[in-house]
Structures are given as structure tokens and as C-alpha cells.
Amino acid sequence: MTDSGPEQPGNPTQGPQVEQFYREHSRELWALFYSMCNDPERAYDAVQEAFVRLYVYRGEPVRDLRAWLLRVGQNWLRDLARKKSNSCHLLPGMDDQTGQGVSPEERMALAERQAQIRGALQELNDDDRKVLVMKYSMDWSAAQIATVMDCSAAAIDMRLSRARRRLAEILTERGFQND
């Protein structure tokens, strides 16, 4: 909380602008935060936190909203990691399965499976994880990812392939069963 967000108050950012930006970019921000923290709920909180801070921000005009929000969310995640705050949060997929006739056992198995893959993703280096998140969470093409990662689409394809292979190796080592 200490180093997140610009320090100066007084911002002209209007509500409708923020809302529009939220509609267009919140998911992308979530994916990027997810690639940083490997936790869907925490990434979601980071998005909310960044937008709340933007809403109340009264500093100098924000010229690049996306960069500003990324910085705020990233700092918030960093602060959280520093505090080692492991507050209780929903297991991934729980809200999705609620009320859909899924038994508690199946739900637990699903949560376990998700946790295993998440743990394996954690083992990857940052760039490999980021590439996988952009590819599978955002459904971006190699060319789109290449724009963000500042490299060629061919390099992204290679990195994607390598990241998948490395993830497969980790999952195999951990005895993950693909049903």
C-alpha cells in the first residue's frame, strides 16, 4: 500500500472514462496480474484495487491508464507478498461450480487438480508463465503476444512450445494424472 500509485493528488479522470476502460481492459489486466501472482483471486483483487485507486485518485492527469493501473496493481501485489498475507480466499473454480449439481468430492478433486497445475506453473520462469497466460487465458495469437513481449511471433511460438513441454515435465514429475 505504501508505494503503489502516484503520490500527487488532483486527477481529472472521469467516471465514464474509467468505466469504459474497465470494460475494455480489466480482463487483460487480470491476466497480467495472474501471470505475476499465479493466484486468480488475488489477481482479481489487484484489478479491483487498481481501479478503486484510479477512481479516487486526484493526482496529476493520467496519460497512460493501462500503464498506471498495471503499476498500481503490481505494487499492491508486491506489498501483499511482502506482508506474506495468506488470507482466506475461494478455491479456484468453486464459484463456477456452485449450484451446478457437482458433488463436494468432485469439487475438491477439481480444486486439487487446479492447484497442481497452478503449482507447476509457479515453477516456470516469469516469461514462460506470462506467455502461457496470454495464450490460454486471453486467447491471444502469437503476433499479439509478440507485441507485448517485444519479440517476433516465431519466438513466441517457440517459447510457447517450450513452456508447454516444461510444464508437462513438471506435471509428470509430480505424478499429475490427466483424466
Binding site: 480482463r27 495472474y34 487446479q114 490460454y136
Partner: peptide, 20 residues
């Protein structure tokens, strides 16, 4: 590895569908 590339592709798609 016990997984093919296409298996990993499906697994990751499913994983991120649930994560999102």
C-alpha cells in the same frame, strides 16, 4: 513426459477457463 502437446493445449485451456 506423459502428455502430448495437444493434451497440454487442452489441459491449459481448461485450466484457464476455470481460473478466469
Amino acid at each position: 513426459t506423459a502428455f502430448s502437446d495437444s493434451q497440454m493445449d487442452g489441459l491449459l485451456r481448461n485450466f484457464f477457463r476455470l481460473e478466469t
